[in-house]
């Protein structure tokens, strides 16, 4: 019974940590807009934490450059399992307009495994919330696999 409750709770309490990997801040504003009264993702138990050690979801924005890819990797590594990654915005998906720049890696999935891609430049908050819901499902599945 307790195990079931824990399984159920995983989906009901996704704490997110938001990492700006060289974004223009457009996606970041939209991501944080999800927490505002209009969208209020806390309805689903989402809490914006400041620390990967507390987080279940990693929300990454930005094109990723050669300097901050190490930080991205380390933050991902510091999250305890089960965890999921949501890449937000055109830059996060592929590098966007910065793709060809000399210092840009171009895409979060080149550094860490990404579970959900939310496209748009910037994506709407509704889309981001959709992404979060999708991510919850994936890491529920991951937890089941691990068990």
């Amino acid at each position: 019974m307790i195990k079931d409750f824990i399984e159920k709770s995983r989906a009901k309490s996704p704490w997110m940590v938001h990492f700006d990997c060289g974004s223009c801040n457009g996606c970041d504003i939209e991501t944080l807009a999800c927490l505002t009264p209009i969208y209020d993702v806390e309805r689903f138990g989402v809490v914006n934490v400041g620390n990967p050690k507390h987080a279940d979801l990693l929300m990454v924005t930005g094109a990723v450059n050669h300097r901050n890819k190490h930080a991205l990797k380390k933050i991902y590594d510091q999250m305890p399992d089960p965890k999921a990654v949501v890449a937000i915005g055109a830059c996060g998906l592929s590098g966007g307009v910065f793709r060809e720049a000399y210092n840009v890696v171009g895409g979060i999935d080149k550094v860490i495994p990404v579970d959900v891609y939310v496209y748009g430049c910037p994506p709407k908050p509704e889309a981001i919330i959709d992404g979060v819901v999708k991510a919850i499902e994936t890491f529920k599945a991951k937890a089941r696999e691990a068990a």
Partner: peptide
């Protein structure tokens, strides 16, 4: 054991107390 949180810039393993 995991290294302490240092905004993702810690330089080494769990017993390392340095950052880049």
């Amino acid at each position: 054991v995991a290294p302490m949180y240092m905004s993702g810039v810690h330089s080494g393993g769990p017993d390392d107390e340095t950052f880049r």
